[in-house]
Amino acid sequence: MLYLDDIAVGMKRSFGGYEVTREEVLAFAEKYDPQPFHLSDEAAAQTHFGRLAASGWHTCAMTMAMFVEHMKLHPQASLGAAGVDDLRWLKPVYPGDVLRCESEVLEVRPSQSRPEMGSVRNSMTTFNQHDEPVLRFTALALMRRRPAD
């Protein structure tokens, strides 16, 4: 189990491998982001995307899915997230792309008022199969400290 006390500024992790499917792009868009360029090849061809593109929110969801899978393999004393800053969609994500993630610890801060926990600020970048960054954000996660047994 990875606790706050085990984390240091500069630590990096690489993980994931998520194939983006046309069916998933359409299903997500129909339910959560029904803009024409997420739903129609013809409409997307008339935009700067040039073809059907995944919603940025879908890209965020795929990134979260990869992160959760990583946490299953490498358990953490997570207490959830406190927020996300500086979210940027850098390049379109298309059906057929294969995504992966890299994170880097920017800050580790034990809580002043709750000694059993603290926070970790991470930079998260999602890349496509060409190693081009498609999404970047800074996440603030809450974590338990190592028990004092």
Score class of each variant (00 low, 15 high):
R146G: 05
R144L: 15
G83L: 02
S55P: 01
G50F: 07
D5L: 04
T59L: 01
R109H: 04
G83D: 08
A139L: 15
V98G: 00
Q129R: 07
E104W: 07
G96W: 10
L90Q: 08
P115V: 08
L26C: 05
A45G: 06
P147H: 08
P34G: 03
L4Y: 08
D6T: 05
V20P: 01
Q76W: 02
A44L: 07
A82S: 14
H70Q: 13
P133F: 04
P75L: 04
T59E: 06
L106D: 05
E23V: 07
M66R: 00
P147C: 05
P92R: 06
E69G: 01
G10F: 10
A61C: 04
L73V: 10
S119H: 12
G96Y: 11
V84K: 02
T126C: 14
T125M: 03
M62H: 01
Y18F: 12
W89P: 06
G96F: 09
Y32E: 07
E116R: 08
M11S: 12
R88H: 14
E69T: 09
R114W: 06
L26W: 00
K72C: 00
L99W: 08
T63F: 03
L39V: 04
M66V: 07
S119P: 01
S119G: 09
T126N: 06
L90Y: 03
